[in-house]
Design a protein around this nucleic acid. Structure first.
Lengths: 133, 133
DNA sequence: CCTAAATGTAACCACGATGGTGGCAGTAAG
DNA sequence: CTTACTGCCACCATCGTGGTTACATTTAGG
């Protein structure tokens, strides 16, 4: 949404409205994005949110990494018995595999930018003018 | 563990012991793996679990898919407002991106077999005999 | 035939993560 | 000085999950 409406600042209430959700929840997420340097907020009256850099330079991976903290593939918190040949080695071996797999996913997410999505949205809307309101 | 100990059937209690966990939980997971055709179980006295096919033909993706039901990248259950250009298109666009990203991860997981891991475990153990018990 | 050792499953609890809500302080515009 | 925002905390309800107990079922072995 921020990319689509360009320079205009959007408030968390407007965004929440469109998401059929709640301003606080929206601010929570946008807060994570701000910490990651993807969006900026201004306080006070007429405040709101904008992208911190051009949509062309924000990838899906950037957004994903900003919001998701832990890894996607769940490691077991609880190490197995060190008495077992397999047990005492499997965690570090799987760690490598999982990191590689996650890297592959991240790499793919990094190939699409927010700008790509906005362009696709506009292309679809141009193709189906009947759906306009 | 099943691959490492080859033909020998292991009981859920033995496995749970080594995992410092609980037989029922182990049976739950093994149950999913059985549904996926990766392991076999025999009931009754001297029962237990074995691989259903050679470890060389079981990949990490097989195990992952057997256990994980939903997709890793969370879609939003709750569709945004259709009144918004972005809202009414973003879900299907993201769906494509997410599926691609998940496919990339799955492809990477599919490159490693259980047998690969067992070989690595044995290699490490051979290299560090001091750690043996 | 009976017992012991397994799986198979359901019920249940405790815990943590998460969506959602309200409240309130801080800040900036008019 | 009021209004409209963000920022943040505390709280609740819900849900998924690990974990446990219990019990029915199956099979081997004395």
């Amino acid at each position: 949404m921020l990319a689509r409406w360009g320079e205009k600042q959007l408030t968390s209430a407007e965004i929440a409205d469109s998401l059929v959700s709640n301003p606080v929840l929206v601010r929570r997420i946008l807060g994570s994005l701000r910490v990651a340097g993807l969006v900026r907020s201004t306080e006070g009256r007429n405040g709101g949110w904008t992208l911190a850099r051009p949509a062309k330079r924000i990838t899906l991976y950037d957004a994903y990494a900003a919001v998701e903290d832990g890894p996607v593939l769940s490691r077991h918190p609880h190490p197995p018995s060190a008495d077992c040949e397999v047990g005492r080695n499997i965690q570090s071996l799987l760690e490598v595999e999982f990191q590689d797999a996650e890297r592959a996913m991240a790499e793919r997410l990094g190939r699409t930018t927010i700008d790509d999505l906005v362009r696709e949205v506009l292309a679809i809307e141009r193709r189906l003018p009947a759906r306009h309101r």
